[in-house]
């Protein structure tokens, strides 16, 4: 009994805070998704129209799938770039591996907004990359193609996420029992065979964790598209932001946010099935 009281008084305040400023707002958003409007009499009219127009509006769907595709591209490229990094650190870097991993992750600790901002300067049409190529004589005319495009969003976000994707892969590779690789060699496996049949399969939970590490947050991105995306680089998050800040159609925005919330929570659920929890904690190992 004493135990329970102590537990309750410890867990009470943080639970209350989480309830009031996290669960309650999401619940209110659910209520808003049924409202006909946010001012005047429409505020108190409840309807399913928002859901109906969300389901039938092909513009929303296009943007939703386009965002998903952008996130998918970012996560695939990040995983492909991160895997050799993690592999090198675990199997070839020897005793320095943790120091080198830290070296890799330090830039990712600095301001997220500023790293994106840096890419805006690099890719800009009168920006660093263009002016560098011009002054080296590689190109004759500044190319406006570098910024305000889908590729600019992808390049920038791959830059942001590669170190984070490398972490869980690093953790998964580090746990592989080296005896298994020796056994494979003793049984006549060539190194690449051993890699394909032992190392790679055993590291897949880490790859899955890394993949979702990048996929889930980029799905909700709206700042990077604002800075470097231009019209063709817009993502679903920008649509939500628009509904709240410009179109002032909060009920519609609520429906769109809830759709994304459901998608994200489903993905997280799949992730917790695919990868071990200790891989997810890779950031803190």
């Amino acid at each position: 009994m004493e135990n329970r009281r102590q537990f309750a008084s410890l867990i009470g305040p943080p639970s209350l805070y989480l309830f009031l400023l996290f669960l309650l707002p999401v619940g209110l958003m659910f209520v808003y998704s049924f409202r006909a409007g946010i001012t005047g009499p429409a505020h108190d009219v409840f309807t399913l129209d928002n859901y109906r127009s969300f389901l039938t509006n092909s513009h929303f769907h296009r943007l939703f799938w386009r965002s998903a595709l952008i996130s998918l591209t970012i996560s695939v490229i990040s995983s492909l770039l991160a895997y050799p990094l993690a592999y090198y650190l675990v199997f070839q870097a020897g005793r320095n591996r943790v120091t080198l991993m830290t070296l890799l992750i330090i830039p990712a600790w600095t301001s997220y907004l500023l790293r994106i901002f840096a890419w805006k300067l690099i890719l800009g049409s009168s920006g660093l990359l263009n002016s560098l190529l011009l002054s080296l004589g590689v190109i004759e005319k500044a190319s406006p193609m570098l910024i305000y495009s889908r590729s600019a969003v992808i390049v920038t976000l791959v830059y942001v996420w590669v170190p984070f994707v490398a972490l869980p892969i690093f953790a998964a590779l580090g746990r592989i029992d080296r005896n298994l690789l020796e056994a494979a060699a003793d049984l006549g496996c060539k190194p690449w065979e051993a890699f394909l049949r032992v190392t790679l399969p055993l590291s897949l939970p880490g790859v899955a964790a890394g993949f979702f590490f990048a996929f889930i947050p980029t799905l909700g991105e709206f700042v990077t598209p604002l800075l470097v995306g231009g019209a063709s680089g817009q993502m679903y998050g920008n649509l939500i932001q628009d509904q709240f800040m410009r179109a002032l159609n909060w009920p519609m925005g609520s429906v769109m946010s809830l759709a994304m919330l459901v998608a994200v929570i489903t993905l997280v659920f799949i992730l917790t099935r695919l990868a071990s929890v200790s891989d997810l904690g890779g950031v803190y190992e």
């Binding site: 707002p25 999401v26 209110l28 889930i216 909700g220 998050g237 709240f244 909060w250 919330l261 997280v268």
Partner: peptide
């Protein structure tokens, strides 16, 4: 009991897109 529910709820902010937090708090 209550421990795992607390853990799940408190970890959710790690994965939920910030745009959703932003707009839901705007509503609140």
């Amino acid at each position: 009991p209550g421990r795992s529910v607390f853990l799940a709820v408190s970890a959710l902010p790690l994965v939920i897109p910030y745009v959703i937090f932003g707009v839901s708090l705007l509503i609140l």
